[in-house]
Each structure stands twice: as C-alpha cells, then as structure tokens.
C-alpha cells in the first residue's frame, strides 16, 4: 500500500511472514513506475491479492530506465515464503538478466534468487494479472505459472 524499502511497493501487507504455501510474484520492468503500476492493477483486478506477495522490481538503482539484477534478486527473496516465486519480465535486458540469475542457481548464496524461483514465459501485464488471480485463489507455483503462460495464447482479434 505504501512505498516499501528499496523502492518496491508491496500491494499487500507482509504481516504473515511465517506463512508458507503461497507463491510469491515478482514483476520486473525497465521502469519502476511500470512495475509498481502493474502490481497495483493486478491486485485490483484480482479483487485484492490476499496473502500473495507481489513485489515490483523496476528500473535502475538511480530511478532511471534499466534493469538491476540486485534489485530483482532482493525482490524475489522478499516475495519468497517457501512456495516458490514466479518472475514476470517485460523485455530485452529484463529477460536476459533474469535468465542469467536463474542460470546461476544457488551459486550466489544470499545474494541470488531464492530456490524455487522461476521466470514465466508470459506477457508482462496479462501474465501478472493471471498470476496474481491464480495465486490469490490458492494455486501453487505450477498453477500460477500455467495461468500466466496461458495469457500468451489469448487472442484479441
């Protein structure tokens, strides 16, 4: 609801930090504003995100347009409550950065992605909405990924 640490905006409270079982969702955009707005929109369209942690990770550290691996990894660790993390990305370096982070696996210990983090092959906005709706409805990581990736196939005309 308010701007959190590191420029991220949790759209739900992180009060029940001990609760495992809900996949987290990270939204990676070149723009901080885009990531934060899509997080809010997805939460609104899901009718509230319930227990789902949706963490935006957009822009470069200076607030400009870009991709920041450390911000992304930190967002994924915050989104993680033990049930995996679904990462949605917009384009270009956001895709490559998350792919590279995933490829590093657990090599980076406390600095990398948490175990069970995966990048979804989904359109950023539509996938984010589908992922938040699915997660709020009780889906596991597999279900969240399936819902988001199905959004690729939705034809608009």
């Amino acid at each position: 609801m308010t701007t959190g640490i590191g420029g991220t905006v949790p759209i739900v409270s992180e009060t029940d930090l001990g609760r495992a079982g809900t996949p987290g969702i990270v939204l990676v955009s070149h723009s901080r504003e885009v990531a934060e707005s899509v997080a809010r929109l997805a939460g609104a369209l899901a009718g509230g995100a319930g227990d789902v942690r949706v963490v935006p990770a957009g822009g470069d550290p200076a607030g400009g347009v870009g991709t920041d691996a450390e911000l992304i990894a930190a967002a994924a660790r915050r989104a993680d409550s033990g049930a995996g993390v679904a990462i949605l990305v917009d384009l270009g370096s956001a895709v490559l950065t998350v792919r590279a982070l995933v490829a590093e696996g657990g090599d980076d210990g406390d600095e990398g992605l948490p175990p069970g983090a995966r990048m979804l092959d989904a359109p950023f906005l539509e996938g984010a909405v589908a992922a938040v709706v699915a997660a709020a409805g009780g889906a596991d990581l597999e279900g969240v990924a399936g819902a988001a990736e199905e959004a690729r196939d939705y034809r608009k005309r």
Partner: peptide
C-alpha cells in the same frame, strides 16, 4: 557475477555469462 549485477543493460548478463 559482478558484470551481471552492475551493468544494468543486456550486456551485463551477456558478458557476465
């Protein structure tokens, strides 16, 4: 690893990898 975390564009993950 340093390049991946500090470049901020596509060349970071590419050269880092």
């Amino acid at each position: 690893r340093t390049l991946i975390s500090s470049v901020g564009g596509a060349s970071g993950p590419l050269y880092g990898t």
